[in-house]
Amino acid sequence: MDNIEALRENLIAGKADEVRKNVEEALSLGLSAQTILNEGLMKAMDVVGKRFKANEIYVPEVLVAARAMHAGMDVLKPLFVKQGVKKIGKIVIGTVSGDLHDIGKNLVAVMMEGAGFEVVDLGVDVSSEKFADAVREEKPTFLGMSALLTTTMLSMPKVIDTLKETGLRDKVKVIIGGAPVSREFAKEIGADGYADDARSAVEIARELM
């Protein structure tokens, strides 16, 4: 497992090329894609998430670690189907209508991916209809909504209303986050969970599973 240990260290340090090499080595040593994913990439991203939450590292460090994770993921992806690698769940995620801010949403996407979820990212300025369509088509476990502005966070209850109107509300668990959003707001609009930051999003998702 020395190789996996090195992989984790390199991922946390954001060394994408090294991570890619470590994953290739691990495969050549006969480790399964699932083991490399779980013990290597996911565990390392878990450390990154915890450090981010504790304000020990900040957005730049998370972004370079995410880049390293993706470098490793790219090597593994062709093997996922072949080796029957299981994702633990699926999340559809997006920034709500009228809001163009994507840094926080991208961090959540990266953390969820790093925790073994399949992530469908709808981007920014996502309408209620687009969220509902994605829930219908992708059948995710979770719907994640982000907003940075006090004005645009009011799009969130509208999305939940659309889900209700289209009979999709009980098909998906809704998690919300973003600077102006609070636990109370989540409760008030009938979301299932509120995530304080990207790392908490993973914790909430695991709790709600």
Binding site: T150, T151, M153, L154, P157, P180, S182, E184, F185, E188
Partner: peptide
């Protein structure tokens, strides 16, 4: 302060 929601008003 930090915004809070009252009804649909921030």
């Amino acid at each position: 302060g930090i915004p809070r929601l009252e009804g649909l008003k921030t």
